[in-house]
Amino acid sequence: MLKLIHTMRGHTKDVNGVAFFNDGRRVVTGSWDEALRMWDANKGTLVGKPLEGHQGGLYSVAVSPDDLRIASGGYDKTMIIWDVESMQKVFSPLVKHTGRVRSVCFSPNGTRLASGSDDKTVVVWDTKTGTVLATLEGHYNLVLSVAFSPDGLQLASASSDCTIGVWHIILKINGHHPVRGVVWSPDGQEIVSASDDKTVKFWDASTGQQIGRPCIGHTDQICSLAISSEGSFIATSSKDKTVRLWSTRTFRQIGQVLEHTNGVYCVAISPNGTLLASGGLDQDVYLWRHNGKRMS
């Protein structure tokens, strides 16, 4: 049974991005109010001042594996890498994309950063220098989500062209109606995607073949998904004002539906699997706990 333990207020517009620090004690959120905010996951309180530097609303946030950096991407077509301790920009905003930056993610070793954009490309950046390492072209519409594989050797991208790109082995999976989110299983064998068609699907990362049946239950488009660190369950957020959990073994919904007062745009699971954070159109960040135990 999941229990709402904190409703964290501070943003003044939609919350579009959320990520846990790897220590599990802090959460960072990005909003259409152009600011990032950090929160104490135990107390539900703000940590420090807002991080401001984008010239438009934020779509995505990510935390580096060592918890020393935050990356953000937004409407202004740029990415910013922030130093957590000083709460300052590491570089000037990173400029390469010609469209809004919808998704950002760090590689497992933290040396690279990937971004997906409305300009239909994925860009890979060097996090130490802020330089572009590669521009990946092949999608025919917006790139809405990017995720590195657990070994860091491959990169998955989800697009509104209804496909999932897997870069390095150059595999394209014909997915489902505009694919909003994509994550890897911890063993790197499977890719999980979420879509406007209200479903979640599982794919063999090597062959691109669908595995099992879709997860069905949402009544409006799915905006975001996250997978637990050991891979036993996923969480999805939707415009239907709910967050739902799904078993990666049975593909069935587990537990109760978690309700917001409006559409839910982002969701994240803590590294130890006991906490879940969600945010959306109601401007609040909700923090849920599963009876002090793992949700799996």
Rank of each mutant, 00 (worst) to 15 (best):
H139D: 09
I5L: 09
H177C: 10
I70G: 09
K13F: 03
V285C: 05
E259T: 07
Y75E: 14
D240M: 08
M87A: 15
G56S: 04
G263C: 02
D240Q: 07
D118R: 02
D76A: 11
I227H: 01
S238G: 13
A71W: 02
L46C: 07
R26Q: 11
D151L: 13
S107F: 06
V123G: 00
Y140I: 04
G217Y: 09
M79W: 05
G130Q: 03
I173W: 13
K239A: 09
W184Y: 11
W167F: 05
E137Y: 00
N22Q: 07
N109G: 15
V146S: 07
T242H: 00
H168Y: 11
W82M: 14
Q210M: 15
E85L: 12
V104P: 10
V132S: 00
G73A: 02
G53S: 05
G255L: 09
R69P: 07
S238R: 09
N16R: 05
Q209G: 12
A158F: 09
D187R: 03
S117E: 06
I234G: 08
V122M: 03
I222L: 12
A114C: 07
C162D: 12
D187V: 02
L46D: 08
Q221W: 10
V192E: 01
W288C: 08
M8G: 11
K89P: 13
V267R: 00
L155T: 03
D151P: 07
E52C: 06
G44H: 13
S60D: 09
L245T: 12
G48W: 11
V132C: 00
